[in-house]
Design a protein around this nucleic acid. Sequence first.
DNA 1: TAACTAACGTACTAGTTCGTACATTACTGG
DNA 2: CCAGTAATGTACGAACTAGTACGTTAGTTA
Lengths: 214, 214
Amino acid sequence: MTSTAQASTEPQRDRERTRAEILDVATAEFAAAGYAGARVDEIAAATRTTKRMIYYYFENKKQLYMAVLQRAYMRIRDAEQDVDVAHLDPVTAVRRIAETTFDHHEAHPDFIRLVCVENIHRAEHLAELVQTVDLRTPVVHQLDVLLRRGREQGVFRPGCDAIDLHMMISSYCFFRVANRHTFGAIFDRDLVDPAERGHYRTMLGDMVVRFLAA
Amino acid sequence: MTSTAQASTEPQRDRERTRAEILDVATAEFAAAGYAGARVDEIAAATRTTKRMIYYYFENKKQLYMAVLQRAYMRIRDAEQDVDVAHLDPVTAVRRIAETTFDHHEAHPDFIRLVCVENIHRAEHLAELVQTVDLRTPVVHQLDVLLRRGREQGVFRPGCDAIDLHMMISSYCFFRVANRHTFGAIFDRDLVDPAERGHYRTMLGDMVVRFLAA
DNA sequence: TAACTAACGTACTAGTTCGTACATTACTGG
DNA sequence: CCAGTAATGTACGAACTAGTACGTTAGTTA
C-alpha cells in the first residue's frame, strides 16, 4: 500500500520536504556557478524530483535564487543569535565575538559565495528581500553594547561604532574564505589551511583588541 | 582618400587599437555580469567593431576573459610598482602602504569585481595565467623589508609575515568595495560614501599600525 | 599599379536553456 | 469509497547565445 522500502509511514508527497530539497540543491548550484552560470536543469537533475516542481514551487529562476538567498541569510542570522558574552569583560567579549564570526565564515563557505554572487549583481535581490525581512545579524547589537561598556570602563577608545567594527571583523573573515583561490594562486599560500587556522584566528583577535584599546 | 572627418592620418585599421577597445569593453562587461552572465554579443555591440573581430583576436569567450583578467592584474601590479617608502620610518611607511592599497582598491572597482568573479570560478583561469606571468604585487616585498626594519628597531613585534599583513590590509580594502552593495542593503550604510572616506582610511591605518606595535 | 594579405562585416547555424502544456497519480474530506 | 485537489512526471517549444562560413575592403609591397 504505502511505499516499498524506507520508513513505512513516510509519505511519498511532502510539500515541505520537496521544497527544502530543492533549496538545498539550488544553494549549492548558485554558490558554485553564480546566478547566470547556474542551470535549472542541473538543479533538477540533482534533486529526487523534476524541473517541473521547481517552477511549481518557485515560479521562476529568479525567485528560486531569492528564496535561496533569503534562507541563507536567515540561517546565519539565527545561528548568531545565541552567542552569549554578557558575563565577559569587554575586551575578552569582543575577542570572543570576532572568533565566533571567524568560525561562522569558515563553516559556511556557500553563504560567503552567495554574498559574492549577490554583490556582482549589486545586491538587487537582497535589496528586495530586506523590505520584507530583517536580515541584520544580532552581532552588531552585541558589539554596540560592548563598545559602550568598554568606553565607560575606559578600556576602549572612541572613534568607531558597532557597524564599523563589524565591517572590520567581517572583512578579515570574509576575505580569507572568499578570496582564498585567487590569493592562493598568486601567493601560493592556502588561507584556510587547517594547520594555520589558529594563527589566523589569533591574528584577528589581536587586530581587533589592539585597534580598540584606549 | 583617407577617412572623411577625424584626425586625418589615423588609419582605419589598427590591430592594437581594436584589440584594446575590445578588452576595455569586455572588462566592463565581465565585471558587470560575471563570466557566465557576460554576453559576447553585448560586448561586440558596445565596440565600434563586430563580434567577428572578438573571435578573430581572442579565439573564444574563455580566452577573451583570460586576456581581460591578465591585463587587469598586470595593470594593478605595475601601478603599485612606484610606491616609494624607503626614506620613511617603518611605522609611517606601513601606514602609507596601507593607505595606498586603500586608494587603489577604491580607484579600480572593476578589478575588484573581476577578482570576485574569478573566485566564484575557484581561480581556475588565474591558476593558468600564473604559470606564464608573475602577478604578485610588489607591495608584499616592500612590506617584507619594512617588517624586518621595524623589528630590528624594536618598533614591530614578530608573529606575522608580509603576506599575512598584506592579507589583513587587502581584506579591509577589498570588503569595503566588493561588498558595499550587500552591506549597504543590510545595514543601510554606504561604505564608499565620499564623506566617510577619511574615516575609513584612518581606521585602516590605525588598525595596521596598532596591530604591529611592539 | 596590381597582386597579396591582414583586418573587417554579414548572415547564419547548432546547441543550449528557461519555461510550459498536458497528462497522471497520491492523498483527503465528505 | 469516491470525488476533488494538491503534487508530480513527460515531452516539448521559443528564445537566446557561442561560434562560424563566406564574402569584402584597406593597406602594403613588389
